[in-house]
């Protein structure tokens, strides 16, 4: 297992390196510049600004400087937000996203997994259709409808919950609900699929033939294997939710990481784009590794490749 992890780690580093290069050159080739301004800047002044951020150097040299800086842990300054470094921005917003993301995922698991189990066991009955339909609502309405809708109902009409900001625990509820409704559907569906696969195994038939009660079969024999797809999905889901909750962050005014992904690209904030891309890729690599480990742990028939 140590060898497996070491190998995957090395592979991950290569992936990160490749991603860094792709992003760097793609950004360099994109029109627009972080220094475009509504007020015209005279060319010689623009040259001064570019020189300050190292844009006067040839692309390859910039790539090398930027890569070595990154390797030493320094992502550079934001080219748009004066006196803030990329590390500052990530350090401020990542914990917020991590908190929101993990609470949302936890809630999504609590809704999705029971739904999926019931749906699989009572397949093609109303106990399958109704809970699955309800859980599906989260992926049939865009979050930018669900969010404002929840804010309208619970914030403005019922006046139960705060509608925006990120201060106390009650501020987490609405955004987390929006996100978890979205992810619950995936967990429900994955669990349903995984459980169905287990319930169709030969040993289940044998057990049924021997008269073992249905729920014993479900709990004792099928649950562990049936949850594998959902557990495997947890990793990518966490990476996705941390970086991709732009909509929810915008609607509920949460100072998370998601909006930086959009702002960086729209502002052409090159260093920030690079920093975020590397962070996201690293998250994906780590989460996939964890997912693989979990996968093997849950399924003894598999071995580390």
């Amino acid at each position: 297992m140590a060898k497996f992890i070491a190998l995957r780690f090395l592979q991950g580093l290569l992936v990160l390196l490749a991603i860094y290069a792709i992003t760097f050159f793609l950004v360099a080739a994109t029109p627009g510049s972080p220094f475009s301004s509504e007020r015209a800047i005279p060319p010689h002044i623009l040259a001064q600004i570019e020189a300050f951020y190292g844009y006067d150097k040839p692309v390859l040299e910039r790539f090398w400087t930027s890569l070595t800086n990154t390797l030493s842990g320094e992502f550079g300054p934001s080219a748009v937000y004066a006196n803030r470094s990329v590390t500052d921005i990530i350090a401020e917003s990542f914990p917020v996203s991590l908190k929101l993301g993990s609470i949302s995922l936890l809630a999504a698991l609590l809704i999705g997994i029971p739904t999926g189990i019931v749906a699989a066991v009572r397949r093609n009955t109303w106990l399958d259709y109704v809970p699955m339909s309800v859980s599906m609502a989260g992926i049939c309405l865009p979050t930018f409808v669900m969010g404002p809708l929840l804010a309208l109902v619970f914030g403005l009409i019922l006046r139960l919950l705060p509608v925006s900001g990120w201060y106390g625990p009650e501020y987490i509820i609405l955004p987390a609900a929006t996100l978890s409704l979205y992810y619950a559907a995936y967990f429900a569906r994955l669990t349903r699929g995984g459980m169905l696969e287990m319930l169709n195994q030969d040993f289940v038939r044998t057990a049924r033939a021997k008269g073992v009660p249905e729920w014993t079969i479900v709990w004792k024999h099928c649950l562990k294997g049936g949850l594998i797809p959902a557990i495997t999905f947890l990793g990518p889901a966490l990476a996705g939710i941390i970086s991709g909750s732009f909509v929810v962050e915008t609607i509920f005014q949460i100072p998370g990481l998601g909006q930086w992904f959009v702002k960086a690209a729209l502002n052409r904030d090159d260093f920030l784009i690079l920093g975020l891309t590397v962070l996201f890729a690293a998250l994906i690599v780590v989460m996939n590794l964890l997912a693989d480990i979990a996968h093997v742990a849950l399924n003894p028939r598999l071995k580390y490749e």
Binding site: Q11, I19, T23, L26, L266, R268, L276, T277, I284
Partner: peptide, 22 residues
Amino acid sequence: MRLVDILYALPFTIFVILLMVA
């Protein structure tokens, strides 16, 4: 498949915006 891994680890939002911009 390593190439797929690489592309998979690119953040979608940033790339779509950059593509649209480019």
